[in-house]
C-alpha cells in the first residue's frame, strides 16, 4: 500500500516536530519501521523517576494491524511479563487503524499509572498486587530504582 509508508513518514515527522511529553522516540538506523522508545514513568506511580526503554515495530500491514511493542527494561507490573510483553487491548483485538504510534505510547504510559491486576500477564505479580498492594508498589518502585534509573 503506497499510502502506508507515507503515513509512517508523517507520524515520524509529527513525533519529531511535536514530541509527546515524557516520551522519546528514535528511529533505528536503516529501518523506518523500527523504533527505540524511552518512556518516563508517570508521576504519582511507583514508576516515577524511571526511564524505561521500549522497542516498537510497525509490521507490514500497519496501520491495518497493530504495532508490536515490548519493554526492554525489566518491569514489575501485573500487565507486563518477564519478556517485556505488554497486555493491552489496543495492541491486540481492540486495535483500530485510526490509532497511531503516539496514542499507543500514551496508552502504555497510562497503563503504568493504572495497573490492572484483573487482566494479568505476569500472574505472580498480579497475585501480589491483589493480596498486598502496598508491598507490590514498593517492589515496583524498587525495581524502577534498580533497573530504570539512568
Amino acid at each position: 500500500m503506497s499510502m502506508v509508508p507515507k503515513r509512517i513518514m508523517k507520524e515520524v515527522e509529527r513525533l519529531n516536530k511535536d514530541p509527546v511529553p515524557g516520551i522519546e522516540v528514535d528511529i533505528v538506523e536503516g529501518n523506518i519501521r523500527y523504533f527505540n522508545v524511552i518512556m518516563a514513568g508517570p508521576s504519582q506511580s511507583p514508576y516515577e523517576g524511571g526511564h524505561f526503554k521500549l522497542e516498537l515495530f510497525l509490521p507490514e500491514e500497519y496501520p491495518m494491524s497493530p504495532p508490536k511493542v515490548r519493554f526492554l527494561t525489566k518491569m514489575y507490573h501485573p500487565n507486563i511479563d518477564k519478556l517485556g510483553r505488554i497486555c493491552l487491548d489496543i495492541l491486540k483485538d481492540k486495535w483500530s487503524p485510526a490509532l497511531q504510534i503516539r496514542t499507543v505510547l500514551l496508552s502504555i504510559q497510562a497503563l503504568l499509572s493504572a495497573p490492572n491486576p484483573d487482566d494479568p500477564l505476569a500472574n505472580d505479580v498480579a497475585e501480589q498486587w491483589k493480596t498486598n498492594e502496598k508491598q507490590a508498589i514498593q517492589t515496583a518502585a524498587a525495581w524502577t530504582r534498580k533497573y530504570a534509573s539512568q
Partner: peptide, 19 residues
C-alpha cells in the same frame, strides 16, 4: 522505498505554528 521517496512532500497539521 521508492514510494516513500516519490511522495515525500509531507503536509501535516504541525505545519501550522503552535500559536
Amino acid at each position: 522505498m521508492d514510494g516513500i521517496a516519490s511522495s515525500f512532500e509531507l503536509d501535516d497539521p504541525s505545519d501550522w505554528p503552535s500559536t
